[in-house]
Nucleic acid binder design. Structure first.
Length: 136
RNA sequence: CCUAUCAGCCGGGUUAUCGUCCCGGUUUUAACCGGGAAGGAAAGUCCGGACAGCACAGAGCAACAUACCGGUUAACAGCCGGCUUCGGUAUGUUUAGUGGAAACACUGACCAUGGCGAAAGAGACAGGGCCACAGAAAAUUACCGUCCCUACAUAGUGUAGGGAUAAGGGUGAAAACGUGAGGUAAGAGCUCACGGGUUUUUGCAGUAAUGCAAUAAUUGGGUAAACCUUGUGUGCUGUAAUGCCACGUAAACCGGCGCCUGAGGGCGGCUCGUCCGAUGCCGAAGGGUAGGCAGCAAGAUUGUAACAGUAAUGUUGCAGCCAGAUAAAUGAUGACCUCAAUCCUGUAUAGCGCAAGCUUUGCAGGGUAAGACAGAAUCCGGCUUACAGGCUGAUAGAUUUU
RNA sequence: UGGUUUAUAGUUCAAUGGAUAAGAACACUUCACUACGAAUGAAGAGAUGAGAGUUCGAAUCUUUCUAAGCCAA
């Protein structure tokens, strides 16, 4: 049965465990795609196929208002575009932990973040498919 | 009506679509319904508390904080009211100078009063320090000078020695109460008059700081935001406190101390006191976990009214329940409304101008159009800092009219 | 979130509240030496994180900001 497409980003879809985050920073792979730096790793996650975290450096943005603003924009852009990645991972029965860091120096606007988030997600989809072919 | 300063207040609202967190409910494990979701500073962490643990926290020293008086408060270095000193300002009296025939005008000084602003505002006769350069001297000062005496030379006078003196001396941030008179060999608060400062005692006013008056004494720089003295206060650590549950490992090995004649510990230092203390303590090198619940959202609470008080603030009544995350929610994209601002068009009015036109103010219509500082993390009371725009009040100044 | 420390030339460090112009080393600039460079010699430029206060006088004392660091169950 075909359910209506929903663009959600709930608590279970956020990367919150301190343990998995430390493991991701230690062992995970990464790539850069300006203005983002992305860390990713396949692990076992109970609640959702993909968990994502967002961060902004406090050295580049001293005010908490600016940091909150950027993280909210990133979260919004991710929420609207991540569904295809999710379905791909469901099909292959894999779980992915992702961490996206904003490394730019200037305060971005909404359209800029949405535009730049798209190639990041397509690359992540590509990575999942590559791993499938390599394993089989 | 405008400008400036100071003080206080506000810091948009409604709504659509897609989302986030918490609480409650329905069904049931995935949704739906209802309700709620940042600030005046949430910030800096500069003070003060609540709360928790360490002995429901002890003594002395040290250390730190604080400092006019009274009130307020849970408490404070906050706040409110007063006192004193200082600053600038207005008015008035007196006085000096200039102009003027005079009335008077202008400028300056002392004093008084009014409102305004500022003050880390105890003590420098308890004590010892320090005060560069300059200057004779930077705090019991004699370098020059002034005056007296003696000796020698001598026309005047000079040289040497001994004394007296704090009036004069190009300095300096600061020079030994100020002005005038007496006095003296020369001088000196040495004496006197007027004035200033400090202190004692008494009286009156005031809760007090203090003020006024009298009386007596005194007149010796600055620095306490250097040491210090005096009064007062402070035990320490902080919600990652603290309590409980779950998971997991190693009570491994090595070195040192100790086992009741006591190692060590009891949350900043020292001495004491007191309590705990043997499956113990310290060091070195490793191993494991980094999940959950409580703390944690009803309180020195918010709004409002009355009363008490100059005020800060307090008392009482009524009504309300108002964020609670944890790699950390409160968002994204639109629409409309209103306040204020600004621009354009039309029109009226006043001023300048021969005119073209320029400027001031009012009215009508239209366009743009919520824009600053900034994001809860245990919670309160303050302080400090940041802030687009707006509102209110007080004071001062300018202009116009009467 | 709570606590705590620091700020002096480009860098690493000095300077008791006391004054000409905040000192030293390395680095930098110019000149000399050299065929060219290095080394050496001579000369030069360059700083108290910002504001306010106390004081005759502040790098130093007090205070408000700013920036950077450190600690934690």
């Amino acid at each position: 049965m075909e359910t209506k497409q929903r663009y959600t980003f709930k608590k279970d879809e956020k990367l919150k465990s301190r343990k998995t985050i430390e493991q991701l920073f230690k062992e995970g792979k990464s790539f850069s795609n300006f203005p983002f730096r992305v860390l990713w790793q396949f692990t076992e996650l109970a609640k959702a196929p993909v968990q994502t975290g967002f961060a902004v450096s406090s050295k580049h943005f001293k005010k908490a208002v600016d940091r909150n603003r950027i993280k909210r924009l990133m979260r919004e852009a991710y929420r609207l575009q991540k569904n295809e990645l999710q379905t791909q991972l469901m099909l292959q029965r894999k779980q992915l932990a992702v961490f996206i860091i904003y490394v730019g120096n200037e305060l971005p606007d909404h359209d800029f973040i949405v535009e730049k988030m798209n190639p990041v997600l397509t690359r992540l989809i590509k990575i999942t498919n590559e791993n499938l072919s390599a394993n089989t």
